[in-house]
Every structure is written in C-alpha cells, then in structure tokens.
C-alpha cells in the first residue's frame, strides 16, 4: 500500500513480522532497532491494544537510496509474544507492503508454523489481499538451537512456492538483516512498478 508523505519527501512502507508465538518476531525487530543508527530511526514503541500489544519502529535504510528523489522509510511492525486475538493479527496486516514470516525451526513447532502460515493467508484474504500478491519472504529462525528440522523439511512444509528464504538466529542477529534485505528488494521492485 505504501504512502507518500510529500512534505517530508518520504515513501513509507510497512513491513510486518508474522509467525507463531515465541518464534522470534520481536527479537528480529529489536535487533534491527539496536543496530540502526539512532539518528536514522524513530523510537521503539510498544502500544497496548484492547487485547494484545503492537510493537513498532521506523527507520530510513540508507543503503536503499531514494526513489524519484524520495527517501524510503520502513516501518517495522509485529505483535509480540503469543497473540490471543485474531483481530490483533488482522490489524497489524492492514496496509502491509511486505511480510516476513518467521518460522521456528524446532521440530516441536512444526504444527504451530503451519497453522500460523495458514492463519496469515486467511487474515490477508479477509483484508482483500492474497499472499501471492504481497512481497513475502520466509525466515527459518532458531537455526542454532537443538532439535531443529532440516531446511528441506521446513521448505517442504512452508515454502512450496519457493519464495526467498533465509536461515537465521535472531538471538545472535545472524540472518536478520539478510532477511530484511531480501524483503526490501521485493518491496522496492514492486514500488518501482507502481511509481
């Protein structure tokens, strides 16, 4: 959806981190916040909603340059922890320009991953969007913990379409920026076709 702030000469894009509870969504967003230059980002905001909490911050990724003279501002959103109400998930997806699905690589979370991915498709459909039409990448998180599924197993279960996928350990920061850059490329490419 991206909105242009003509006065600030900025194109604002909303990136949503989605996934099952405790998969590392917040850890991803927090890592990007921690590593971003303070002068290029806003504050991290944790906003209580009626039932859950939304965590977000925005920053200007300098390495992405400008689009027709307008700077890019990415707004990273997630609903942290275990989300109890689907309304919170739907709300955070509103107007998303790109989605990172954070999967938990642990074997005992396989079902939670699949359910969450299905839930993402359902919730997007309710907002009138198809997952296929939104820039989308998958991150296989927690690659550094014990009892993880193989990449092939994860791919077979979660990525039949072959969207860009990344291994990560958000706890250490490994793969976090690679994931965001992967999604950024897709978002920019879509922006280029829209402008």
């Amino acid at each position: 959806m991206s909105y242009v702030n003509h006065l600030a000469r900025e194109i604002n894009c909303k990136i949503v981190y989605y996934g099952p509870g405790l998969c590392g969504k917040t850890t991803n967003v927090q890592h990007i916040f921690d590593v971003s230059k303070p002068e290029m980002r806003g504050k991290m905001i944790s906003l209580a909603t009626e039932s859950d909490r939304t965590l977000f911050f925005d920053f200007m990724p300098l390495d992405l340059g400008t689009v027709k003279g307008y700077k890019l501002r990415f707004h990273l959103y997630t609903v942290p922890g275990q989300v109890f109400y689907d309304a919170s998930r739907k709300l955070v997806l509103r107007g998303a320009d790109g989605i990172v699905f954070v999967a938990d690589s642990q074997a005992d979370r396989a079902e939670a991953n699949s359910e969450s991915l299905e839930n993402l498709q359902t919730n997007l459909a309710e907002t009138g969007q198809a997952l296929e039409s939104v820039p989308f990448v998958i991150q296989y998180n927690k690659r550094d913990v014990a009892d993880v599924l193989s990449l092939e197993e994860l791919r077979a279960a979660l990525n039949p379409r072959g969207v860009p996928e990344f291994e990560a350990s958000a706890r250490t920061g490994a793969g976090v920026f690679e994931t965001l850059k992967g999604l950024s490329r897709l978002v920019l490419s879509r922006l280029a076709t829209q402008t």
Binding site: Y3, V4, N5, N12, K14, T54, R94
Partner: peptide, 16 residues
C-alpha cells in the same frame, strides 16, 4: 499533506 496524513492513518492506525 492532509490527504497524506489520512493515508498514514489508514495504513498504520490513528493510535499508532
């Protein structure tokens, strides 16, 4: 600018 701010509200939410 008001129209842009309307878009921001639609995308991110008024409270946000």
């Amino acid at each position: 600018h008001f129209a842009d701010l309307d878009s921001a509200v639609a995308m991110f939410g008024r409270h946000e």
